[in-house]
Design a protein around this nucleic acid. Structure first.
Lengths: 155, 155
DNA sequence: AATATCCAGGATATGTAATGTCCTGGATAG
DNA sequence: CTATCCAGGACATTACATATCCTGGATATT
């Protein structure tokens, strides 16, 4: 149950794009910034684009840019864009299989085991939705010197 | 980011063991109860055993039995026994790689991105720890008829 | 004591999803 | 017209969950 690395890549990339100042930045520059494989990062950026978090500009001087400020992007937005919105606990209804499934009457309501796991996942998603990228940015060092370094690294 | 099926298997199996009445039940019987592959379920049961949730009895008439009542087993206990206790978001410190890593001074504190994801995971684990198997059992139909069926299926 | 039954655990496939690469096509600035 | 960039499909690689098998140890029964 490991989360895709793409989530980490996307979060740092979105933060970098905010530092970049608004103009489009190419996927190669964004990949070089953290030593990531450019073609694969590009696929993650496409997913962020489809999710509406990024806008893509084709052609020379093109690239990706944020569509809204960091305080309007939650961790849940990014996780769902990269990982999708499928539950991590997937009920396969084993209660209906095997001897118990054959001997018991078909259950009526939803599976209580599934319900319990879903409640816990809901807490996780709420916590993800409660944190914005702006709050994360505030926690990391964003002095003027660092800002200039990041802009230089994205050149 | 899909959870292992073993978690679902373990949860239903623990509930079945409670219905069985205390005596050891063989892994073959537990597997047949839900049509699961016996050798692989056995491995999951070994993990539950190592985690202290189950006791195993070798020899004829042996098998697995609960070590404590369902109200002393939380969802977190089961998830950690099967999945381990590694975080789902694994920080690979990409902030230290690539151009940004080379141009920036080495960061001092822990990664804020990692911190934010960890906070959300903590909410999930708290929610898992707040639900016991006894509460799940209360949600499913455990009339005397169903109880007898399950005991018969485990024979 | 001998035997049958059960778990423990290592070694080894198999399948599936994440990861990574490549290529073609379309859009756009210069 | 050309160079640069994204879009997206196809494919290779890797990692991990899933599944199977086999040997050994423990124990109840005969």
């Amino acid at each position: 149950m490991r989360m895709a690395k793409g989530v980490e890549w996307a979060l740092h990339t979105l933060l970098n794009l905010d530092m970049a100042g608004g103009g489009p930045v190419g996927s190669s520059q964004l990949a070089q910034a953290h030593g990531l494989p450019a073609p694969y990062l590009n696929k993650q950026l496409q997913q962020l684009s489809r999710a509406g978090l990024l806008a893509s500009t084709p052609g020379p001087r093109g690239g990706f840019s944020l569509t809204r400020p960091l305080d309007a992007i939650t961790l849940l937005d990014v996780v769902q864009a990269i990982e999708g919105d499928a539950d991590m606990f997937q009920c396969t209804e084993i209660r209906c299989c095997g001897r118990i499934g054959e001997l018991s009457p078909r259950p009526t309501g939803p599976c209580p085991v599934k319900n319990a796991m879903s409640r816990a996942e809901a807490s996780w998603r709420e916590a993800l939705a409660a944190q914005t990228l702006a709050e994360i940015k505030a926690e990391l060092d964003t002095g003027p010197v660092v800002g200039e370094i990041i802009r230089a690294a994205l050149r």
